[in-house]
């Protein structure tokens, strides 16, 4: 089977509809966060769900398209961070493939790894495209580290990792708990799930 055929088979109709609803879950996750006033983002539930069920390519597509569509609807800043969302989906799919989504402690470690990987991609975008601030509440953390004498690059890196690590651990654990409890009739056809359920 060639790579192209393999990719095409990953994008069957079932996976396509999963990605479409996952994009919307990501967007309304922000609405849930607004209601609960938690200091996290909660905008990656759908991306991590697709990464676990359908693999890294579908997960990356869900993340990338979420931010592009979000950028089109309300927030162009989100579109600039589309590569970050792509990395979250790809990292989730790969971590699941390597068996790091089988036990709860592995899921916590995976959340930390996802936060670390996305930091590597997000920091250059935030520093070079936005001068370090993006209009989010975390800008004040960047300013705080800057006042402490850190360079802009390290201030942004500390802020991005710090604000994402709790978010990604919480998101990964919640999605994992939901996926573990899903009935078979909802998960048949998602071949990547075998790496999570064992």
């Amino acid at each position: 089977m060639t790579e192209a055929v393999a990719v095409r088979e990953q994008f069957n109709t079932r996976v396509l509809t999963l990605i479409a609803v996952a994009i919307v879950i990501n967007i309304v996750g922000g609405q849930i966060n607004d209601a609960l006033h938690l200091p996290v983002f909660l905008d990656s539930f759908g991306t991590i769900l697709v990464g676990l069920l359908a693999g890294p390519i579908a997960g990356g597509a869900a993340g990338l398209l979420t931010n592009l569509i979000w950028g089109l609807i309300t927030n162009p800043v989100a579109a600039a961070f589309a590569p970050v969302a792509l990395v979250i989906g790809v990292a989730t799919g790969l971590l699941a493939r390597f068996g790091l989504f089988r036990q709860i402690w592995q899921v916590v470690i995976s959340g930390v790894i996802i936060a670390a990987v996305l930091t590597v991609v997000a920091v250059p975008i935030q520093v070079y495209l936005f001068g370090g601030v993006t209009g989010a509440g975390s800008d004040f953390a960047v300013a705080y580290f800057s006042q402490l004498g850190q360079t802009l690059f390290s201030s942004v890196a500390l802020t991005v990792f710090g604000s994402n690590v709790a978010d990604k651990v919480i998101t990964a654990v919640i999605v994992w708990l939901i996926v573990k409890r899903l009935p078979e009739r909802l998960t048949h056809g998602f071949s990547h799930l075998k790496y999570t359920r064992g």
Binding site: T17, V21, L36, L38, I178
Partner: peptide, 21 residues
């Protein structure tokens, strides 16, 4: 509360995705 809200949302979304496919 996050779990209480997101869990039914994901489950119903998967049912809808299945129907749409």
């Amino acid at each position: 509360g996050v779990f209480l809200l997101i869990s039914p949302l994901i489950t119903t979304a998967l049912i809808e995705a299945d129907q749409r496919s």
